[in-house]
Design a protein around this nucleic acid. Structure first.
Length: 109
DNA sequence: ACGCTGACTCCAC
DNA sequence: GGTGGAGCCAGCG
């Protein structure tokens, strides 16, 4: 558990995002001990899209914008999923992000 | 083994 | 205050 690949660490954190909450790439990156690897988090998401236990739709950029919605099926699946969890999205961006923002308290080393 | 790319983020203008 | 450019790390061709 203490040792895991970069991708695995990302998955572990993303899987812990509670229902109706979202987090940012940077927060995840920092939680896994790589605050400068936020891009890698998104990269890991792309690979995780085959895994249904990874709620990638709950991961947005630090601006709250659905940058990855284009990588989901259809054209607005990501937004649809988030709205289903009670999250309000306007212009591909989450309104009151801090209201839904969930910061990982764990630290995988 | 080298270089490009990317679901980001920060700094500067 | 918004837009643009450079930095960063890890996977892939």
């Amino acid at each position: 558990m203490s040792e895991a690949n970069f991708f695995d660490k990302v998955y572990q954190v993303v899987r812990q995002i509670p229902f109706g909450k979202v987090t940012t790439y940077g927060a995840i990156a920092k939680a896994i001990g790589a605050p400068r690897s936020a891009r890698m988090v998104g990269y890991a998401m792309n690979a995780s899209h085959v895994d249904n236990s990874i709620p990638a739709h709950r991961v947005v950029n630090r601006n709250g914008m659905l940058t990855g919605k284009h990588h989901f099926e259809g054209s607005n699946l990501m937004q649809q999923l988030l709205e289903s969890e009670g999250i309000v999205i306007v212009n591909n961006k989450i309104e009151n992000l801090q209201n839904y923002l969930w910061l990982p308290s764990i630290e995988i080393d």
